[in-house]
Every structure is written in C-alpha cells, then in structure tokens.
Amino acid sequence: MPYRVNPDRNVPWNTLPELPIDRHLYEDVEIYSQLGNAKAALGRLQGRSIVIPYQGLLINSISLQEAKASSAIENIFTTDDELYQAYSEEQIQQQTGPSKEVLYYREALWEGYSYLKEQVFDENYFVKMYRIVSQFNDGIRTLIAQIVIKEGGTGPNAGKVSYTPPRGKGVVEAKLQNLIEFLNDDKTYPIDTLLKMAIGHFQFEAIHPFRDGNGRTGRIFNIHYLTKKGLLDYPILFLSRYIMDHKEDYYAGLAGVTQRGSWKNWLLYMLKAVEETSNITFDKINDIVNAKDAILKAVIEDTDIARPESLVNAIFTQPYTRVKHLVGGNVYAENTARKYLDQLTDMGVLEKRVIGKGNYYLNLELYRILSE
C-alpha cells in the first residue's frame, strides 16, 4: 500500500501512519546495498573501540565533538576553545552561552546511555533527554502549544509553514507509544537495526512531542539505539557530523517522507551518514591512539616523570588539562602535577594558556585531531 502523506502542511498531521511502515518501502536493492556498507563500517568501528584499554580517551573527546556538531545543526555555535575550556571547568551550571547548551547535550548523551543499560525505551527516556537538552521541566507538549515548523533561511519561502506535527487530546502520546513499541519489540517488528533507527528517527521528528529540543533529542536517540542494540559499546559515533555537513539534504529527506512518501531517499541518507561517520570516527580514534602512544614513548625515554602512563592518559581525556584534574583524580600532588604539566609544555606536547586567573594546558595533538 502507498504511504499516506501529509495532505496539508498547515494542518496537524494527525493521520501520521503508525509503525511499522510497509515492507515495500525499504525492501530495495539499493537500500540493502547501502545497509551492508553502513553495517560493515560500523562493525569496524565497534571492533576498534572495544580493544582500546583506556576508554576515557573515547568517552570524553569523541562524544564532545558529537555534542558540538548536533548543537550546530540547531544554530548553536561555539568554538573549540570555548567548548574545551568550559568542559574543563566540570560545573555546567557555572557556564554561559552556547558552550553550556553543548555540554548539556553531552550530559544527555551519557545520562541516556546509563538509563538504557537498565531500561528499555519508554516515554520517561524521551522526556529525560528533552529536559536535559532544553533545560525545561515540562514534558509532552499540550494542546496549548501550537507548534508549527517553518522554513528557515532567507529565500522566497522563508518563514512559511513547512510542516505541522500531530496535535490533539492524547494524539501525541498515542503516536509516541506506538514508536516506543516499534523500537523495543524486535519479534513483532523484525527489521534490521539500522533501518529501525532511521525509521524511528523520522517518526520521532514527525511526532515532534516537545515544545523545543526535538532535533537534538532525536539525534541523541540515534546513538542510543545503536548502543542499546549492541552495535556500539559506547555512544561515540560522530553521526551529527554528516548531518551538519549535509544539513539541507537532512531536512529535505524529512520533508520528502511527509510530502511524497519518499522513504528510499531518507533511508539512503541515514545509512550513508552511518557509513561515513563510522569511518570518520574510526580514523579519529586511530589518530588519537597513535598520538598518545608517541607521546608516551617520548615521556618514558626523555623524562623521569613518575607513572607516565597515568599522566598521558589524563591529558588525552580532554583537550584542556588543569592541575586540579590530576590532583582530584589522585594522580599526583598539586606541586608535582604542576611541575609535570610544565615539563610537557617545555617538550612541546602541551601549550600553557593563562585564562582569567587559571592555567590551562592544551594538548596540541588532541586538539588538532578533533578539529579536523
């Protein structure tokens, strides 16, 4: 059967079809070919990540870049310097501006990851993610919220309504519950995990259950679905990088389903995103590991630093290291930590920056790799 599209973008799409979609919409040679490429790339990334002994290297650095890219899609921009400095302070509540919003995204990435270790996808999960990224305390939008999606940019259609999500008593809740059942029940809905992720992401964005933060919440879901289903051990896929680089195609893909039922283009887009960002993340991990090993070798051979591996692990946990990170982590006493960080600065491994009243030590190689 053909997919029932949205007949009038100015009217709430209360007839948004429930999941699953008909098999003919995804049983396609080109889709399955791209699916194979995406699964191979993701499997290679998973295989590389699980053999790294120091997971903090991935958990902080890679996920911070995902948070930055996803926030940029919503026109929340921050520089690497601002973000890394803010992250090194450890207290999000004390931050201001775009960096604070990016750090909340990263917090949601890890809070949701922990939540799903013990739970399945449910309404509470989505509300929890929304509340962290938006910093609002409400939940599913009410009838009062007359939400419409408008065209952005400066073109002739800028400001015009492009889509109106479902609205009505119990309508949003019912459609979200259908999505949740589709995600959790692999026996009733035996669809490949990556296809399910792509279908689920569209459905979530079409439901648009919250007043704000739906885009960021939906992209966080993408990563969490992969970790929950065992395709990744950690939420480290740099998926928003592809969406940011192909932003117009992303929104065109969503609109293509709502207006023309063009599921093939949407699924190919998302599968290509998984393939390319898996390769990008794989390469970044290798570059970081190689840089870490080279620096550790130099520290061992050229210095008398005690417990060199602990020190090198610490400076690769995040781009900016402060004395308090080494003291708080019980790695070194304060004077020893300062001495060793200054020593690495003299070696050209770190760059010492005085910002306000504090000293920040920038890992030059890690900064370079993450910025590429």
Rank of each mutant, 00 (worst) to 15 (best):
P2Q: 03
R4C: 10
V5F: 05
V5C: 04
P7G: 11
R9K: 13
R9P: 13
P12H: 03
W13R: 08
L19N: 10
I21N: 00
L35P: 09
G36D: 15
N37I: 08
N37E: 09
A41L: 09
A41T: 10
L42I: 11
G43L: 00
R44M: 12
R48P: 02
I50D: 01
V51M: 08
L58T: 04
L64A: 04
Q65Y: 04
A67I: 03
E74Y: 02
E74P: 04
N75A: 07
E82G: 02
L83R: 01
Y84A: 01
Q91S: 13
Q93E: 14
Q93Y: 14
Q94H: 14
Q94A: 08
E101Q: 01
E107T: 12
W110Q: 06
Y113Q: 12
S114Q: 14
Y115K: 14
K117I: 02
E118V: 12
M129I: 13
Y130W: 13
R131T: 15
V133H: 15
T142H: 12
I144S: 15
Q146H: 13
I147Y: 12
G155D: 15
P156C: 13
P156L: 15
V161G: 10
S162N: 12
K175G: 05
N178E: 09
L179G: 09
L179E: 11
I180T: 08
E181H: 12
F182D: 10
Y189H: 06
I191Q: 04
I191R: 07
Q203D: 05
E205P: 05
E205M: 06
I207H: 00
G213E: 05
N214R: 09
N222F: 02
L226R: 07
F238L: 00
F238T: 07
K247Q: 08
E248N: 13
Y250K: 08
A255L: 15
G256R: 14
V257F: 12
T258V: 08
R260S: 07
S262D: 15
W263K: 11
W263S: 09
L267E: 12
L268R: 09
Y269F: 11
Y269V: 06
K272I: 09
S278E: 03
N279A: 05
F282L: 00
F282R: 01
D283H: 08
N286Q: 00
D293F: 04
D293G: 09
I295E: 08
S310I: 03
S310T: 07
F316V: 01
Q318C: 06
Q318V: 04
P319W: 04
T321I: 03
K324V: 00
N330S: 04
V331F: 11
Y332I: 08
A337F: 00
Y340N: 01
L341Y: 04
L341E: 05
D342Y: 10
D342P: 03
L344R: 06
T345Y: 02
L350R: 00
K352S: 00
V354H: 10
G356L: 01
G358P: 12
N363Q: 02
Y367S: 08
R368N: 06
E372H: 02
